[in-house]
């Protein structure tokens, strides 16, 4: 299995304006206002979701849209990789709502 690519540290520095909303069922949704991209994150599955505006969503496309362009990703790797991406996203974004139950994130 190909190892997941390292997540470049400045990944989200390139797109620092993710806007995140936490729902009361522990899911959250992130919006990038300039591109229109939307990420819906569910507590069990960890990842995934929708990318708007440019056709069907896929993990590979998600990774690509998040500027990890020079990688060859397989599905299993992608899930792990995208979890990293999501963690980075949540760590670096400006939160518009963050209930106490989510402080551990």
């Amino acid at each position: 299995m190909t190892a997941p690519p390292a997540v470049p540290l400045p990944l989200f520095a390139l797109r620092p304006q993710w806007h995140v909303h936490f729902h009361d069922d522990d899911s959250c949704v992130a919006f990038h206002p300039h591109s229109g991209d939307i990420l819906a994150l569910t507590p069990g599955a960890g990842v995934v979701l929708r990318i708007l505006r440019d056709g069907p969503a896929s993990i590979a496309e998600l990774a690509e849209r998040l500027h990890t362009l020079d990688t060859t990703l397989r599905t299993d790797d992608c899930l792990t990789h995208c979890q990293h991406i999501v963690d980075e996203l949540l760590a670096s974004t400006r939160l518009i709502e963050r209930p106490d139950s989510h402080e551990a994130r």
Binding site: D24, D25, I38, L39, I96
Partner: peptide, 22 residues
């Protein structure tokens, strides 16, 4: 349906998501 998926689906079907943004 988890709320985030519902939000994303509404956003996918939103005509002015980029236009009026956040």
């Amino acid at each position: 349906l988890v709320r985030a998926e519902a939000t994303a689906e509404l956003a996918r079907n939103c005509f002015n998501l980029v236009g009026i943004g956040t």
